[in-house]
Each structure stands twice: as structure tokens, then as C-alpha cells.
Amino acid sequence: MKQWPALITGLLFGAGLALSGMTDTRKVLGFLDIAGNWDPDLLFVMGGAVLVTLGATPFILRWSSPLLAAAFSLPLERTIDRRLITGATLFGIGWGLWGYCPGPALTSIAYGSASTWVFISCMLGGMWLAGRLKVTVSRLDD
């Protein structure tokens, strides 16, 4: 079972999200509400996480391969196109409407709220739909 680190890293990631306050939709919406009673705490979640990744990523990517896999699987796409910006905009609107991005939504399954299942089911549907839209748009372009 060479994939066991995925379970451990998932546990750490979920614990980090729950500890940080990212799974609390009120806190997330308070963070995004810069014109209201702004709650800056979640800036420090991003800050703490990015400090670690900025420091460790260059060091790890110097290795010829990861410890338990044949090669690194990294995104190859480099261009900033309309698709990226449109997608990020739609995602940001959804995030601001309810307060969940994908990680905290999935972690919150542990809290047993029905609305979380509604959110996640529709998120999955949206991901499927985005794939269908891509097929349609590329046909129109042809």
C-alpha cells in the first residue's frame, strides 16, 4: 500500500482547516466582508500555509523524484487566459455566496449538516457541467 501518505496528509490537511476557522462559514464571510465588520484572521491561515509552501517547494522540487512515486505530477499550463479568469471569478462568487471553498466543504461533512451535502452534490454537478461546457465551446470554435 504505497499510497498511505495520502491518508496521513489528508488527516493533517483536514485538521488544519478545522483548527484555522476555514470550516466556519461565518468566519469566511466575515473575512470577505472588508466593507463591514472585517475579520482579518483568515489572512493568517493563508499566510502560515504559504510561508511553508514558499520555503519547502523549491527544496523538494530539486529532488529527481518524490520519495514514494516515480515522478512529480505538476500542472504544465502556464498561460493566463479567459478560461482561467472566468473560472476563478465564478468560483469566487460561489465562495462569497455561502462561505465554502472545496476543502472546507468536504471537511465539514464531519459536522453532519444537510446543507453541506447539498453544496457538495451541486459542486460535483458543476464540475461535470464545466466539462460538458468545454466540449460544447470547443465544437462552436471549430
Binding site: G92, I93, F119, M123
Partner: peptide, 10 residues
């Protein structure tokens, strides 16, 4: 919100 997050992230 879930639908927008799903479409947007993909």
C-alpha cells in the same frame, strides 16, 4: 453556491 464553485474550480 456549490454549482458555481464546481463550475468555476474546474
Amino acid at each position: 453556491a456549490g454549482l458555481l464553485v464546481g463550475v468555476g474550480t474546474r
